[in-house]
Every structure is written in C-alpha cells, then in structure tokens.
Measured scan of single mutants.
Amino acid sequence: EVDTLELTRQVKEKLAKNGICQRIFGEKVLGLSQGSVSDMLSRPKPWSKLTQKGREPFIRMQLWLSDQL
C-alpha cells in the first residue's frame, strides 16, 4: 500500500528543488497532461480507492523518486 499523500508531497518537493515544471514531469515521466498531473498532485486519491490503471502514475512517481526511472 502506497501513502499517496506523502508520495505526492515528496514529488512536489523534488520538482521544486530541481526546477522541474509539472508539464515536463507529466509528459516525460508519467505520460500525462499537465492538468492531470496538477490534479493528481494536489488531490491524490487514497491507494485503496485507485484502480490498477489509477495506481500506475503513483508507481512511476515512486520509481522516479528512487532514481530508477
């Protein structure tokens, strides 16, 4: 189980620290539009309420944070 709230907090922190905009992060890392990324980072759904497809971007965020992506 992933703590989506904590994960998105860490992602936002790393984006800010490295000067990466959400649009680029969305396109290059998540394969999503800036609007989708913005929504996901500001209002993450609980892991238990996400479908497999809904969980994929959060898994990619985890990999990106651990420099595996």
Rank of each mutant, 00 (worst) to 15 (best):
K17S: 06
K53A: 13
K14F: 15
L65Q: 00
R55N: 01
V11S: 07
L63I: 06
Q52R: 14
L41Q: 04
S36Y: 11
E1L: 04
W47H: 00
T8R: 08
D39H: 04
C21W: 09
K12A: 03
I24Q: 14
L15C: 09
L15S: 10
F58L: 04
V29W: 09
K17P: 02
P57D: 10
T4D: 10
E13P: 08
P46D: 03
M40C: 12
G54R: 02
F25D: 01
S42D: 14
Q62F: 01
E1F: 10
K12Q: 03
D3G: 05
V37K: 05
L63D: 15
G35Y: 08
C21K: 12
K28D: 07
T51S: 11
S33L: 11
L5E: 15
P46L: 14
K12T: 04
K28T: 10
P44W: 09
L7Y: 06
L15R: 11
V2F: 12
Q68R: 11
K12I: 04
Q22T: 08
M40V: 12
P46I: 11
Q22V: 09
E56F: 03
L7V: 12
E56W: 03
V11I: 07
N18T: 14
M40A: 07
G35Q: 15
M40R: 08
R55P: 00
L32W: 12
K28C: 04
D67F: 01
D67I: 01
T4W: 13
K45V: 10
W47A: 00
L5M: 15
Q22G: 03
L32M: 12
P44E: 01
W64Q: 00
L69S: 11
G26Y: 07
F58P: 00
K14W: 10
G19A: 03
S66M: 10
K53P: 04
K53F: 02
T51P: 03
M40I: 13
T51Q: 05
W47T: 01
Q52C: 12
S38K: 15
S38H: 13
S38F: 05
I59M: 12
I59V: 10
Q22I: 05
V2M: 15
V2I: 15
Q52L: 12
E27Q: 13
K12Y: 01
S66E: 11
E1N: 11
W47R: 01
K28M: 07
D39T: 07
L7W: 05
Q62C: 04
W47N: 00
K49N: 07
M40F: 06
G35K: 15
Q10S: 07
E56D: 06
Q22A: 09
S38G: 10
W64V: 00
L32H: 05
V2E: 12
E6R: 07
G35P: 10
K49P: 01
L63H: 14
S48F: 06
Q22W: 12
M61H: 00
L69H: 07
G19R: 14
V29K: 08
G54D: 15
M40P: 05
W64Y: 03
L30S: 02
L5G: 11
G19H: 03
E13S: 08
R43L: 07
F25V: 01
V29N: 01
G19W: 03
G26Q: 01
L69Y: 10
L41I: 03
E27H: 11
